[in-house]
Design a protein around this nucleic acid. Structure first.
Lengths: 141, 141
DNA sequence: TTCCCTGCAAAGGGTTTGCAGACTG
DNA sequence: CAGTCTGCAAACCCTTTGCAGGGAA
């Protein structure tokens, strides 16, 4: 459960899927391991720039998309439509409690689908989305 | 509860907020009254074009934003980040059941926030989002 | 060495803004 | 008639794509 373990796990998954482990990809894994909350492509680019001043946006985008496709990251459109990514929790279903100021997130296990939602119509349920937005303790001051 | 009533109501709100009632705005109200589901700006533009072949995208966007700001419409970013609008239900809190194929929506009154969610941390809850995606009866075939 | 990956550049889609003329109230 | 609204055009932001050189396996 240590941070370096997370990085290692992410790289492992990439490697097992046939992707090459480049320095940039190591850095990406490190960034998401260091920042447990959601990051926008711009955030990621900024962090990457510290180590690789000449990194390009397209590389960031390409890798983010790839990491999302293989399940290393979890992508997410916020209420304002902005795209963000975070390290994916691989082992269980959960939802998010998100600070609208600093965007720090907590996960929680309660799922409304398990608790007696009654739905109109004869829809075949495929997916659902449940997020709670608020101010974290630090941001309430 | 008739359709023309809805149009009238929407125009009324706009008028009371000091906005002028132009032909294009009448058409917009009519379009949303005729289409109870979610419409993208492009959808709206296409419908507008039928009556006003020279309508421009910026007029559509400006009015959609304005109608959203004053509560006539309800705006919404879908799971894929796409922006959509629909006529706002002004009288009660509800959530949506959305067909992932035709995007027809049903509303339902169950709200997870009323049903014993237990949250970690000391967040001050501001907002929440709960949507269920599925296939409607027509689209299951 | 092979093929993937990167960075550059440019294109693309969706949305917003500045402006002059047209229309509402 | 005054002030807003529209349409045009261009700008803007975010994201994707094509390509040639550089790096991983």
């Amino acid at each position: 459960m240590s941070k370096s373990n997370n990085v290692h796990e992410m790289l492992n998954i990439m490697s097992k899927n046939g992707w090459r482990i480049t320095d940039q990809r190591k850095s990406l894994a490190q960034i998401f391991s260091d920042h447990p909350g959601y990051l926008s492509p711009k955030d990621v680019y900024d962090h990457m720039s510290e180590k690789y001043p000449s990194v390009s946006f397209d590389t960031v985008y390409r890798n983010l998309r790839m990491m999302n496709d293989m399940g290393v990251l979890e992508q997410f459109y916020f209420m304002d439509g902005g795209l963000k990514f975070r390290a994916n929790c691989l082992d269980h279903h959960h939802h998010h409690l998100i600070c609208i100021n600093c965007e720090k997130t907590l996960t929680f296990d309660y799922c409304p689908m398990d608790n007696g939602v009654e739905l109109p119509g004869n829809y075949k349920i495929v997916n659902h989305r449940f997020e709670i937005y608020g101010l974290c303790e630090d941001c309430q001051q």
